[in-house]
């Protein structure tokens, strides 16, 4: 076939369109953040992206999209004059991008937090830290939801429902070490139902039922608190630090969107 000028022009057009699409695809993963989410959650505030304040660890591939462990590590310790107040987690392409906001105090010792989240799509997750001087800084990671038969839903919701409200603290060692940051894990049993279902299919409606608030105190002093949403996995799990100055009680108070409240206290001794 003879290449006429018009076919050449056509080829060029196709090639340039292809490149334009590729360029778009490269920036695409940040589009929702840049165009909508940043403004929605942080208004016109400046967000530093040099990564000096926190580190985010998330798996590139979400092995189980219902249960993706992620962790944030603070690069500096919490001191009364210089500390991280809040770490907000946003999952750009989830139906509800806001996943959680965690609040810390100088008494937290370290503003580290680890939890398990649901990922509905191929998406960026962002952790935005706000320090006590009001400055914001952000780190992000791209997570691919896995293939296969997985879905971002708990495997056995009935079991979680049956023990709803049951909680546990797990300390790193058997005993607490005084006046140092001690890692602890809070396990909360809750089905964490997103309510995102197609009832046209089953005509069975299971309304959203998820944890919205978590507060942890040690001897009455706040250690960590959080507002949370449907991105939290079934049986929410949190790993964080506290600094005990003597033996005492770790107390967790949890609320859900249906107004149910649960609390649990565990005695910690050195």
């Amino acid at each position: 076939m003879k290449h006429t000028p018009s076919t050449k022009a056509y080829c060029l057009l196709v090639v340039s369109l292809l490149f334009a699409n590729l360029a778009l695809a490269a920036g695409e993963e940040d589009a929702a953040w840049n165009n909508v989410l940043k403004k929605k959650y942080f208004g016109d505030r400046t967000i530093d992206e040099s990564g000096t304040s926190i580190e985010l660890t998330a798996p590139y591939r979400a092995e189980d999209p219902a249960l993706v462990p992620i962790s944030i590590t603070a690069k500096t310790p919490q001191t009364p004059s210089n500390y991280i107040k809040t770490i907000t987690l946003i999952i750009d392409n989830n139906p509800v991008p806001f996943a959680a906001a965690f609040h810390f105090t100088p008494e937290s010792g370290k503003a580290d937090i680890a939890t398990r989240l649901r990922f509905n799509a191929y998406t960026n997750i962002r952790a935005i830290a706000e320090t006590n001087d009001g400055k914001l800084s952000m780190v992000k990671a791209f997570v691919k939801a896995s293939g296969g038969c997985s879905a971002p839903i708990g495997a056995d919701l009935e079991a979680a429902m049956a023990r709803m409200g049951k909680m546990k603290f797990k300390l790193e060692g058997d005993k607490a070490v005084l006046n140092q940051p001690n890692q602890t894990q809070l396990l909360v049993s809750h089905p964490s139902i997103s309510g995102m279902q197609m009832d046209q299919i089953s005509r069975i409606i299971k309304p959203a039922h998820f944890v919205t608030q978590v507060k942890v105190n040690f001897n009455g002093k706040p250690v960590m608190s959080a507002e949370t949403d449907i991105a939290l996995s079934t049986d929410p799990n949190f790993r964080f630090y506290f600094v005990p100055d003597k033996a005492g009680d770790l107390k967790a108070e949890v609320k859900d969107n249906l107004g149910k409240e649960f609390s649990y206290t565990q005695t910690v001794s050195p």
């Binding site: 293939g147 879905a151 839903i153 279902q197 197609m198 009832d199 299919i201 089953s202 299971k206």
Partner: peptide
């Protein structure tokens, strides 16, 4: 099965 289909469908359709 009906409940499982209803809750997984939105995600499965995308996938």
């Amino acid at each position: 099965l009906a409940q499982a289909m209803a809750s997984r469908a939105p995600y499965y359709l995308q996938k």
